[in-house]
């Protein structure tokens, strides 16, 4: 019978927490970059101009269809050869996950924008709003509300996908856990602790998301 011993993990908990901090930083950066990238891609795809829609569509489909780990390796090992710059694990990870989550967000934005009744944009145009005004003042505020659950789900997927950066030695939670497992010879305790940490954070985030969702649904009913 195996004897569990979490003492070495407690002793090194600062390492795991530093890793968790890096995981959260990377998720936040990719989210902050991915949302505007996604909106831009969605607007380009819906623009009606083939010159904009075709490249946006290509970026969206390629980043949604290829495995994220291949993308990360391409940005980390491949891109520096074209750009002739030094690539850090952080930069490669931030780039990969910004564009990748942008591609997923783009399709959520698109679905949300398309779901707003066409009569509304016609009405806005009829009272003299420009296309951009209509989008900003009429369509997007309504679309964002409908998109929230899908956005939340995608953001959680994003946080889980950031674990891949451990393979290019960005010191996220999984990377630190792997280091600690080798240092302490306690892989069972370390990986179990890491899994529980991820579970706690992700469960917490999705519970918060569900709460906001309920709030939004209520305020929507009152407005109507």
């Amino acid at each position: 019978m195996y004897r569990w011993d979490f003492a070495p993990i407690w002793a090194n908990s600062d390492l795991l927490l530093a890793g968790l901090g890096n995981t959260l930083v990377l998720t936040a950066v990719a989210l902050a970059g991915g949302l505007p990238v996604g909106l831009a891609l969605a607007l380009a795809r819906l623009s009606g101009s083939r010159l904009l829609a075709a490249p946006a569509g290509l970026v969206i489909e390629v980043f949604r269809t290829t495995p994220p780990l291949v993308q990360l390796f391409w940005f980390y090992f491949g891109l520096p050869i074209i750009l002739k710059v030094e690539m850090t694990p952080y930069l490669a990870a931030a780039l990969t996950f910004t564009i990748q989550s942008g591609a997923f967000f783009a399709e959520i934005f698109r679905a949300g924008i398309v779901s707003v009744d066409k009569g509304q944009s016609e009405a806005a145009r009829a009272i003299g709003m420009s296309k951009a005004q209509t989008m900003r003042r009429i369509i997007l505020p309504q679309a964002v509300k409908r998109m929230f659950p899908a956005m939340m789900e995608r953001s959680i997927e994003l946080m889980k996908t950031t674990t891949l950066v451990a393979t290019v030695s960005y010191a996220d939670l999984l990377y630190q856990a792997n280091e600690l497992a080798q240092k302490t010879f306690r892989p069972l305790e370390v990986f179990t602790a890491a899994a529980l940490l991820y579970f706690l954070i992700i469960t917490l985030v999705s519970m918060l998301g569900a709460r906001v969702e309920r709030r939004m649904a209520q305020s929507g009913e009152m407005a109507r």
Binding site: M159, A166, T203, S206
Partner: peptide, 23 residues
Amino acid sequence: IEFFRNTPVLVQILWFYFALPML
């Protein structure tokens, strides 16, 4: 369902590879 949906799949793979053999 909750546990496997709310943890990253790479953590799961590494758990089975490095941790499970201890048990």
